[in-house]
Amino acid sequence: MRIFLYSLHTAIKNLWHEKWINFLTVMTVGVGLILLGTFILITLNMDSAIKRWSKGFGIVVYLNDDLSRDEEEELNEQFQKDPDIEEITYVSRAAALSELKDALGDKQSILQGFDKNPLPASFELKLRKGLLEPDWIRQKALEIKQMTQVEDVQYGEKWLLSLSSMTDDMKIIAILFGAVIFVAIAFASYSTIKILFYRRKDEIETLKLLGATRGFIRAPFLLEGFFIGLSGGIAGFLGLLS
């Protein structure tokens, strides 16, 4: 206990004696943590936004024009049994035409050239969360397209690939940025301790001659590093809160 109190007293005394060097180190650590924390928050917010966008993602299955109502019901039952499909919405030909007219607004006259409804009936399939891997969805779309009742399948492949690429890039950038900040903080702390070590070289040599152990000599330096890191962490935390 006496050794710890001596080391603590020595560390506090040395921190005050070299206050400007230690202050700059604390600020360096604090600014580094603020930058890292800010980037992490931005990354988390972007990831959250991407997850919100992906909630509405699904596959649109267009049906053959000559399907009977019983065949459509049979296909609907197949989709309901699929564990990968979370929600199924049937859009009839009439409903699809009504949606198109609403989208066209005052330009509905372009549809007058059609003798009959040109739009097919469809199923809108919402997939379970966590199944937005491009390769998996591509395979799923191919399986559905091979069904005899299906005319075509669309699922926004380009959008999905862009989303997946953006997510992967964000993770890589976050790891690299975090590594750079960590190295910078570690280097700043190490350099400060090394400078202080050389400034007290004579004092250390005297302690060695008096028979002091390595642990006894190192303890004040370790406590100084702890206090510098703690102060930098608090400064960074307060900076993020502000």
Results as ranks from 00 to 15, higher is better:
Leu196His: 05
Leu75Ala: 15
Pro220Gly: 06
Thr38Met: 09
Leu223Ala: 04
Glu151Thr: 02
Val60Trp: 00
Ile137Val: 15
Pro118His: 08
Asn22Arg: 02
Trp16Cys: 02
Arg2Ser: 14
Tyr6Cys: 01
Trp53Pro: 00
Ala219Thr: 06
Gln112Tyr: 10
Gly215Asn: 09
Leu132Val: 02
Ser242Asp: 04
Asn64Gln: 15
Arg199Ala: 10
Leu119Asp: 05
Glu74Arg: 14
His17Gln: 12
Ile50Asp: 01
Leu241Gln: 12
Thr25Trp: 02
Asp47Cys: 01
Ala179Tyr: 07
Leu163Trp: 12
Ala179Ile: 12
Leu111Glu: 07
Gly225Val: 05
Leu63Ile: 10
Leu240Ser: 13
Phe216Pro: 00
Ser164Ile: 02
Arg93Tyr: 06
Ala184Ser: 12
Asn117Arg: 05
Ala219Pro: 01
Asn64His: 07
Met1Cys: 00
Asp47Pro: 00
Lys140His: 06
Ile234Phe: 14
Leu209Val: 10
Ser191Tyr: 11
Pro120Asn: 09
His9Pro: 00
Ile195His: 05
Glu133Phe: 03
Asn22Ala: 14
Ala141Thr: 04
Leu63Met: 15
Ile185Gln: 05
Ile137Asn: 01
Leu142Lys: 14
Glu143Asn: 04
Ala95Gly: 00
Gly58Leu: 03
Ala212Val: 05
Glu73Asn: 15
Glu205Ala: 11
Met46Glu: 13
Ala184His: 02
Leu100Ile: 13
Ala184Gly: 06
Ile40Thr: 12
Thr10Arg: 13
Arg138Gln: 14
Thr28Arg: 01
Ile181Tyr: 05
Phe182Leu: 15
Asp82Lys: 06
Glu86Lys: 15
Leu35Gly: 11
Ser189Arg: 02
Val29Ser: 01
Lys208Arg: 15
Arg138Asp: 14
Lys81Glu: 15
Leu223Thr: 03
Met170Val: 11
Thr148Ile: 06
